[in-house]
Simulated assay, not measured.
Amino acid sequence: MPKRLPPLKPLRAFEAAARHLSFTQAAAELNVTQAAISHQIKQLEDALGAALFRRMNRALKLTEEGEAFLPAVSQALETVASAAERIRTPQKAGPLTVSVLPSFASTWLVPRLSRFRQREPEIDIRLSADYELADFDLDDIDVAIRWGKGDYPGLAAERFMTEELFPVCSPRLVLEGPHPLKTPADLKHHTLLHDDVLTDWRVWLLAAGVNDVDPDKGPSFNYSDLVLQAAIDGQGVALGRSSLAHDALARGQLVRPFGIALPGDYAYYFVCPSYAVQRPRIKAFRDWLFEEADRDRRQDEEIPRLGARDDEAPDA
Rank of each mutant, 00 (worst) to 15 (best):
E132A: 15
W108Y: 11
R146K: 11
E122Y: 06
L254F: 05
A207Y: 07
P6G: 10
H190Y: 00
K217G: 06
A207S: 12
P314C: 13
F104N: 03
Y268P: 01
E301G: 13
R117F: 05
L187Q: 01
K42A: 14
G49A: 03
L306T: 04
Q25H: 09
G259K: 01
R295L: 10
Q235V: 08
A231K: 01
D216Y: 12
F221G: 00
W288A: 09
F23T: 01
A84D: 14
L62E: 09
A238W: 00
D140C: 02
A76S: 13
Q43H: 08
E176H: 11
P10L: 08
G94D: 00
T199A: 13
A68F: 05
F258V: 08
A313M: 13
D142I: 04
L165K: 07
T199G: 11
V80F: 09
R112D: 04
V227T: 09
K92M: 05
Y269K: 06
K61W: 09
F14T: 05
E64A: 15
E312N: 09
I87L: 15
H39I: 12
R281I: 01
A248F: 02
A156K: 10
K92L: 10
E85C: 07
L138M: 12
R297P: 00
P280K: 03
A51M: 11
L101E: 12
A208H: 01
P304D: 07
S99E: 01
I303Q: 01
D196P: 02
W204P: 01
K283G: 11
E120G: 07
F166H: 06
D140V: 06
L48M: 06
L187A: 01
E64H: 13
L60D: 01
Y131A: 07
D200G: 13
A308T: 05
A72S: 14
L133F: 11
C169W: 03
S99D: 04
E301K: 15
D247I: 05
E132M: 12
G177Q: 06
A18Q: 03
R115H: 13
L48Y: 02
R119V: 02
W108F: 10
P171I: 02
M1D: 13
V210R: 04
V197E: 13
L138E: 14
T191A: 01
D300C: 10
S170H: 08
Q253F: 06
G49S: 04
A28G: 02
E301Y: 10
A261S: 14
E301C: 11
L226K: 12
L155H: 02
D137L: 12
T33P: 02
